[in-house]
Amino acid sequence: SEEKKKAKERLERLGASSELARELLDRANGNAEKAERLLRKLL
């Protein structure tokens, strides 16, 4: 979806690899905010 694509791009801008961004979104069930929080914990 367009929303998921935007979320993935945002995670990548924050420093996630394409693969990591995809994994985070999967774990967050597509929830962009939750995926971002997970990423911030990792960085």
Rank of each mutant, 00 (worst) to 15 (best):
S1Q: 12
S1I: 12
S1W: 12
E2P: 09
E2T: 10
E2Y: 11
E3T: 10
E3Q: 10
E3V: 10
E3D: 12
K4W: 15
K4P: 07
K4T: 13
K5E: 12
K5A: 11
K5F: 09
K5Q: 13
K5H: 09
K5M: 11
K6A: 12
K6S: 11
K6L: 12
K6C: 10
K6D: 09
K6R: 13
A7F: 09
A7R: 05
A7M: 08
A7N: 07
A7P: 04
K8P: 03
K8F: 15
K8R: 15
K8A: 12
K8Q: 15
E9H: 08
E9C: 13
E9F: 05
E9Y: 05
E9N: 08
R10G: 04
R10I: 07
R10P: 02
R10N: 06
L11G: 00
L11T: 00
L11V: 01
L11I: 03
L11W: 04
E12Q: 12
E12Y: 06
E12L: 13
E12R: 11
E12T: 09
R13W: 12
R13V: 06
R13K: 11
R13A: 13
R13T: 07
R13I: 07
L14Y: 04
L14E: 01
L14W: 05
L14H: 03
G15H: 02
G15K: 02
A16I: 07
A16W: 03
A16P: 01
A16N: 02
A16L: 06
S17M: 03
S17K: 03
S17F: 04
S17T: 10
S18A: 14
S18R: 09
S18Q: 09
S18F: 06
S18W: 07
E19M: 08
E19G: 07
E19Y: 05
E19P: 04
E19S: 10
L20P: 00
L20I: 05
L20W: 05
L20T: 03
L20G: 01
L20R: 03
L20E: 04
L20D: 01
A21M: 04
A21D: 00
A21K: 01
A21P: 00
A21C: 03
A21G: 01
A21S: 04
A21V: 06
A21W: 09
R22D: 15
E23T: 12
E23Q: 14
E23N: 08
E23F: 13
E23V: 14
E23K: 13
L24E: 00
L24A: 02
L24P: 00
L24Q: 01
L24S: 01
L24C: 06
L25T: 02
L25R: 02
L25K: 00
L25A: 04
L25V: 06
D26A: 14
D26G: 07
D26M: 14
D26P: 00
D26S: 12
R27Y: 10
R27E: 07
R27M: 13
R27I: 12
A28T: 14
A28H: 04
N29C: 13
N29G: 14
N29P: 01
N29S: 08
N29E: 10
N29R: 10
N29D: 10
N29M: 09
N29H: 11
N29V: 04
N29A: 08
N29W: 07
G30R: 01
G30L: 03
G30P: 00
G30N: 07
G30D: 05
G30A: 02
G30Y: 09
G30T: 01
N31D: 15
N31W: 06
N31H: 06
N31Q: 04
N31L: 05
N31V: 06
N31K: 03
N31S: 07
N31C: 04
A32R: 06
A32M: 13
A32C: 07
A32K: 04
A32E: 08
A32G: 07
A32N: 03
E33F: 12
E33T: 09
E33A: 14
K34Q: 14
K34R: 12
K34A: 14
A35N: 01
A35I: 03
A35D: 00
E36H: 05
E36N: 03
E36R: 07
R37E: 15
R37C: 13
L38G: 01
L38A: 08
L38T: 04
L38I: 08
L38F: 06
L38S: 03
R40S: 06
R40G: 04
R40H: 09
K41V: 09
K41W: 15
K41S: 09
K41P: 00
K41T: 09
L42V: 07
L42G: 02
L43M: 10
L43T: 04
L43E: 02
L43K: 06
L43F: 10
